[in-house]
Amino acid sequence: MEPFLGMIGEGFLWAMGLIGLNADLMSRYGLRFLEGVWVTLQLVGLSIVFGAVLALPLAIARVEGGKVLSRAAFTYSYFFRGTPLLAQTFLIYYGAGQFREQLTDIGLWWFFRDAFNCAVFTFTLNTAAYQSEILRGGIQTLPAGQMEAAQALGLSRVLAYRKIILPQAIAVGLRPLGNELVLMIKASAIASVITVYDLMGVTRLAFSRSYDMEVYLWAAVLYLVMVEIVRRVWNVLERRLNRHLLVSR
C-alpha cells in the first residue's frame, strides 16, 4: 500500500503544483491527505457492506414480519433516520466509555475503545436504516402476483425472495442506493470529531499546524473526486444491471 500511495502522492503533488497551490504545504501534507482518503474509503466501504447485510432482514421484516417484527424494524429505521448522525456517533463513542466494565467483562471493550471501530459501527447502523427503506420500497413496488406465481411453481418464500423478488428490488433501488453511498462519503467527515484521521481528520490536523485555509480546498477537491468516481461507476453499473429495461423500451 505504501508504494502505491507514494506513486499517487507524487502525481498529486505535481498536479497541485501546476495549478499554483502551495508547494511547501503540499510536500508536508500531501501524502497524509492520501492516507486520509484511504481511511475514508475503508470507513465508507465497511459501513456500506455491513449496512447492506443488516438492511436485508430489516427490509423483509418490514414487509413480512407481522405486527411485532414490522414495528420493531420501523422503530429502528425511524430512530436512525430521524436523529443526526453526529449525535449517534457521540452516543456510541462516548457512551461506550460509560459501560467500560461491562464491555470488558464480555470481551468487547477492545472494539469500542477504538475510534475507527466506533465510527464503522455507528455508520453501519445508520446506513442500514436507509438501505432497508430503499429495499422495502423496491419490494413493495413489485406486483404481489410474482410471489404467488413463484409459490405456485413450488418455490418456498425464501427461494422466491432470493431468486425473484430481491434481484428486482435491488434493480429498482439501484439509483437511491447510489445516492446513499454518495451521502455516506460526505457524511464520513463526521468521524473526524472522534479523532479518526480520515480525510477531514487529516485536514483539521494540517490546518491546526499551518493555519492555511488552502488545506480545506484540497479536502473539498478530494471529496468531489471520490463522489464523481462513484457517480460514474454507478452509472455504468446501473446501465448494465438494467439493460433489459432499456431494450424493452
Rank of each mutant, 00 (worst) to 15 (best):
I229M: 05
G11H: 15
A96K: 07
K186Q: 14
M200Y: 08
G11A: 13
S192R: 05
S27Y: 12
Q42E: 09
T83H: 07
E228M: 01
L155F: 13
T127A: 04
P143W: 12
G95W: 06
G154M: 12
M213W: 09
P176V: 12
R28W: 04
K163P: 03
A149L: 15
L25F: 08
R243P: 01
V215W: 00
R249C: 10
A171R: 08
A59F: 05
M213E: 12
V68P: 02
G137D: 03
L135S: 10
G17V: 05
V53P: 10
G138F: 03
A87Y: 06
I92G: 00
D114T: 05
V44A: 09
G45Y: 05
A115E: 00
S70F: 12
Q102C: 06
F80H: 11
Y93G: 03
I8C: 06
A150Q: 06
Q88V: 09
L18G: 03
L199D: 06
V158D: 12
Q151L: 14
L13A: 13
E64S: 06
I139M: 10
A129W: 05
L237T: 09
R32F: 13
A52V: 04
L43E: 01
L54V: 15
T40P: 08
A171P: 01
Y161T: 08
A23D: 15
I164Q: 04
Q98K: 13
L177Y: 04
Y216I: 10
G36N: 10
V193R: 00
W218P: 01
R100I: 06
